[in-house]
């Protein structure tokens, strides 16, 4: 079997006295869609942000396609922090979509997508333009390409956010509660886009509170609690037959009527 695309080992992170990650080991293979669930404060968002080093972890390692993101080996066994330039180059291989979209407010929808293509991937303008158009069309926004973010609904903004991330052709895509800031009627359009990406084999790590989505889109569910991975397996295993007590409590809180049925 080939090496995992994302290999997380012994990862720890503390904010001050608060230990948020207490030693995470996780391997994710190409094409896997991992739903990362857990109560708030369990460390799932922090873990996600460690994967592209938006959070500087304390100990352990994150390897993207065999490359350690925070350090490089100098050859004589010592580790040396990466330069900002190297870090940027690795980050370009990891896409991220944010809860609050964070589109660049001074750029139109299409400019939001082309920025990374021209400045990071150094593609010629015309090529970047047509790629961005193709992606925006793909997320159903061909008529909104030249609109500014402030002129778009939350769902539309988030779809631009997805287009911006996938246009970079990342090896893995990180989704951080991407529907939790949306009005309920706008959630569907965003999830549909993610679902179609999953079908095409995009490797994704999805932090979500939507259990139906976690089940439908994910082919693996990881449950975190208090900074540790508590359960990890197929959606049916983790969500339908929870063996772990804390996982059971978590699921029953989300879905009281299911708990009553059991």
């Amino acid at each position: 079997m080939s090496d995992p695309l994302v290999k997380i080992s012994g990862l720890t992170k503390a904010f001050g006295d608060v230990e948020v990650l207490k030693g995470i080991d996780l391997e994710i293979n190409t094409g896997q869609v991992v739903s990362l669930i857990g109560p708030s404060g369990s460390g799932k968002t922090t873990l996600l942000r460690c994967i592209n080093y938006l959070v500087e972890y304390d100990d352990g390692s994150v390897l993207i396609d065999g490359q350690e993101i925070a350090h490089k080996d100098t050859g004589n066994g010592t580790r040396q922090p990466r330069s900002e330039r190297e870090l940027s180059a690795i980050r370009a291989q990891v896409g991220m979509v944010f809860q609050l979209f964070y589109l660049y407010p001074h750029l139109s929808a299409i400019e939001n997508v082309t920025l990374g293509l021209t400045k990071v991937r150094k593609l010629p303008k015309a090529q970047a333009q047509s790629m961005a158009e193709a992606w925006l069309e793909r997320v159903g926004l061909s008529d909104k390409m030249n609109n500014m973010p402030s002129e778009l609904s939350g769902g539309q903004q988030q779809r631009v956010g997805i287009a911006r991330a996938v246009a970079m052709e990342p090896k893995v895509l990180l989704l951080d509660e991407i529907t939790s800031a949306l009005d309920p009627e706008l959630v569907g359009e965003v999830l549909a886009v993610v679902q179609s990406l999953a079908k095409e084999g995009m490797t994704m790590i999805v932090v979500t509170h939507e259990m139906t989505f976690a089940r439908d889109v994910g082919n693996r569910v990881v449950f975190m609690d208090e900074g540790r991975v508590v359960a990890d397996g197929l959606p049916s295993e983790v969500l339908d037959n929870p063996e772990n007590e804390r996982l059971r409590t978590f699921l029953s809180r989300l879905n009281p009527h299911l708990a009553l049925e059991k």
Partner: peptide, 24 residues
């Protein structure tokens, strides 16, 4: 979050300054 969004697509610190921080 805007700066993080710039980091996430792989912009260098200088590019983040020119294309994101100064205009916003």
């Amino acid at each position: 979050g805007l700066i993080d969004a710039g980091k996430a697509i792989g912009l260098t610190p200088w590019q983040r300054l020119i294309y994101i921080r100064i205009p916003t």
